[in-house]
């Protein structure tokens, strides 16, 4: 018993349904959206440069944060010396967010776009209050 036509029809319906999210975002223009995080570095005296070059931070900030976390929590090493010789305290809330005090614009934009679950950070680490 081969119901070729029914099977093919079924496959077609399945394909349409399975790819529908793509068509939907194409039609509504959502797929053209690109997140544009606002790098609003606060004027913190003496902290006019980031701990690492921007390129590195863009691609690997999560590795750096992971590494900081492990070395601070597990080994008690809290100091970080950047390539250009500055010394920083390894701390998300107290170093990173000191300059990038705009979590919604700086972190969330990309993280939401990429569906990154950063709740694992922010359910414990305190985000800075944003003056809007």
């Amino acid at each position: 018993m081969y119901d070729a036509s029914k099977i093919i029809l079924g496959i077609l319906i399945f394909l349409v349904l399975a790819t529908s999210p793509f068509w939907y975002s194409k039609a509504t223009g959502q797929s053209d959206y690109l997140p544009d995080p606002v790098i609003l570095t606060k004027d913190t005296p003496g902290k006019d440069v980031c701990v690492m070059p921007t390129d590195y931070m863009r691609s690997s900030h999560m590795d750096l944060l992971n590494d900081w976390r492990n070395s601070v929590v597990r080994d008690g090493e809290r100091k970080f010396v950047s390539p250009n010789g500055h010394e920083y305290k390894k701390s998300l809330s107290n170093t990173c967010m000191d300059c990038h005090a705009n979590k919604t614009e700086f972190c969330d934009k990309c993280h939401n776009y990429m569906a990154v679950d950063d709740q694992t950070c922010w359910s414990c680490h305190v985000e800075p209050k944003e003056e809007l």
Partner: peptide
């Protein structure tokens, strides 16, 4: 009163 310098727990 949350101390922003120290994490809370989850």
């Amino acid at each position: 009163e949350t101390n922003p310098e120290y994490p809370t727990r989850t």
